[in-house]
């Protein structure tokens, strides 16, 4: 679409892009049925995913597709710039449900290079409704200002902020009572920080030290007592 079409053309275009989803869905369901006739019946019995994925809303990173997982294997939350904000009931409900009810074994925070949200947060500009959400990324910058200010190459600085943002969100996850208490009892879930790169299509493990960080965090944020 170029934005110069007649209203009737726009309608037709919208109808087509809308219908395509349904045609594709039908094709996919047929293929899955053919491969395994019990596939959908098994799925309707319930879910027991091993992983919780907290990723970016970015359309280019469908979590299941890039990790090769089937439906039923990964519980998913996606928001702008894969943030885990302390007072956000939305993400906290997801973490709570995944940890306490589904008993996931791994929690992955996955950022990506070239993230529009991170880029926007590096821009000195009023983003309206997005300001409070993106402020969390500016806070990450402030926490790591000494390191980031030293990087003179803008692209490298941006890449590093993407990584540091993932680290901080991993820390936010282990600040929660659900994760600390479940870990104390079962030694899971383990929190991981990853970054997806479009350059090669590969996931990079940032080697977030779950146990070490948990110990560090619990000096201040210990929520395991009187649980």
């Amino acid at each position: 679409m170029t934005g110069k079409e007649e209203p009737k053309e726009v309608r037709k275009y919208l109808q087509q892009s809308h219908d395509r989803i349904f045609e594709n869905n039908k094709k996919w369901a047929e293929e899955m049925q053919k491969k395994n006739p019990a596939f959908f019946k098994d799925l309707s019995a319930g879910q027991s995913p091993e992983y919780l994925w907290i990723g970016c809303s970015d359309s280019r990173i469908p979590a299941e597709a890039i990790t090769g997982l089937d439906p039923g294997e990964m519980f998913i939350h996606r928001n702008i710039a894969n943030l885990v904000c302390n007072v956000d009931l939305n993400v906290m409900a997801v973490v709570n449900y995944a940890v306490r009810h589904l008993k996931v074994k791994h929690i992955v925070v996955c950022g990506h290079y070239g993230c529009g949200g991170v880029k926007a947060a590096m821009t000195p500009k009023d983003m309206g409704l997005l300001n409070p959400w993106l402020r969390n990324i500016r806070d990450v910058y402030r926490l790591h200002q000494a390191e980031l200010d030293k990087i003179t190459d803008e692209a490298k600085k941006y890449d590093r902020l993407v990584e540091l943002n993932v680290y901080e969100q991993c820390r936010n996850i282990i600040k929660t009572a659900a994760v600390q208490q479940c870990w104390a009892e079962n030694e899971y879930p383990v929190v991981h920080g990853w970054v997806f790169g479009f350059a090669d299509g590969l996931l990079k493990d940032l080697k977030f030290d779950h146990e070490g960080q948990l110990k560090e965090i619990q000096k201040i944020y210990d929520l395991t007592k009187d649980a």
Partner: peptide, 17 residues
């Protein structure tokens, strides 16, 4: 967030859509 509904997969779409 349910693991059984990966949107891009069930809609047979490509990354980016």
């Amino acid at each position: 967030a349910d693991s059984r509904i990966p949107e891009t997969t069930v809609c047979h779409c490509k990354p980016g859509e």
